[in-house]
Computed example of a mutant assay.
Amino acid sequence: MVHDTVKELGFLTLGTRFRRIGESLQAQTQALMARHGIDLPAAHFPLLAALDRHGPLGVGELSAAVGVSQPVVTRSLRGLEASGLVESRSQEGDRRIRKVQLSSAGQALVARAKRDVWPVIEASVAQICAPLQGPLLEQLAALEAGLENTSLLQRAAASLTPRPQGPQEKASP
């Protein structure tokens, strides 16, 4: 049996473990969004959320708001614009400055995601993180194990499954 070398190397490979956890979270978030009928890369949602929270932003501002490079933001915006979820406009007075904003379709998608999907994702990730305590490497191992043992999709489905009502909880006719 091959051992997990990245885990065994501890702090030496911490960046790789963070990337691995991030990739797992994004893939599972993608599956959860697909289950809700949203066919959009999970990596695009931080951009949509930033535009929803802050209004129109330039590429540099958007890059700072989500903490990724401008080339990554520019590539993502091309896809979002092609999907009709964002639009860009030149600024009055200086046509070199372009601001990106949510289109009406983008606003509707974000409203739906905020209502139906984001709370489920947040609750599922919080559930994985809730028992974490102790040294960082042990916490990372617990987070990875939590993602491997029960996916976000499974956690979300379990949280949406109706619980049986006890005698005092039954609704009145």
Rank of each mutant, 00 (worst) to 15 (best):
V117K: 02
Q30R: 07
Q127G: 14
W118G: 01
H54R: 14
G10A: 11
L40N: 01
P41S: 08
P167S: 06
A27T: 08
Q70C: 03
R89D: 10
A111M: 01
R112N: 02
M33L: 11
T74N: 11
T161E: 14
A123R: 14
G15Q: 12
V2E: 13
Q133R: 13
L62R: 03
G67N: 12
T5L: 15
A42N: 09
R89T: 10
E87G: 10
R78V: 11
D4L: 11
I128G: 00
L137Y: 03
A145C: 03
G58S: 14
H3W: 06
Q165Y: 06
E87W: 05
H36F: 08
R20N: 06
T161W: 04
L132E: 08
Q107M: 06
I38C: 12
A157P: 00
A49Y: 04
V100P: 03
G55D: 12
K99A: 07
G93T: 08
A156C: 02
K7Y: 07
E61W: 03
Q30K: 00
G55P: 12
A130S: 06
R17G: 08
L137P: 09
P173R: 11
G84W: 02
V73E: 12
Q91N: 07
Q28Y: 04
V72P: 07
L12V: 13
A65V: 02
A105N: 14
L62M: 11
R98E: 10
M33G: 02
R78M: 09
R78Y: 11
L132C: 13
R98V: 01
Q26W: 02
G37F: 04
A64F: 09
R78F: 13
A141Q: 14
E144P: 12
S172P: 04
G134S: 09
G79F: 05
A108P: 02
S159L: 01
L102G: 03
Q70H: 07
L62A: 08
V72Q: 15
R19E: 13
Q154D: 11
A105D: 14
L109N: 03
E122K: 00
G60A: 15
V100H: 10
R96K: 12
L140C: 03
S63G: 10
A111F: 00
S151I: 04
G79H: 11
T13D: 11
Q127I: 00
R53I: 09
I128R: 00
R35Q: 06
T13L: 15
Q165V: 08
I128S: 00
R163S: 14
G55K: 07
I97S: 08
R89G: 10
M33Q: 04
L57Y: 04
K114R: 12
H36E: 12
L12F: 14
L25C: 05
A142C: 13
G146V: 03
A141T: 13
L109G: 01
H3K: 07
P56A: 14
S63L: 01
A27C: 05
M1T: 07
V59D: 10
E169Y: 00
T13V: 10
R35S: 03
G146R: 00
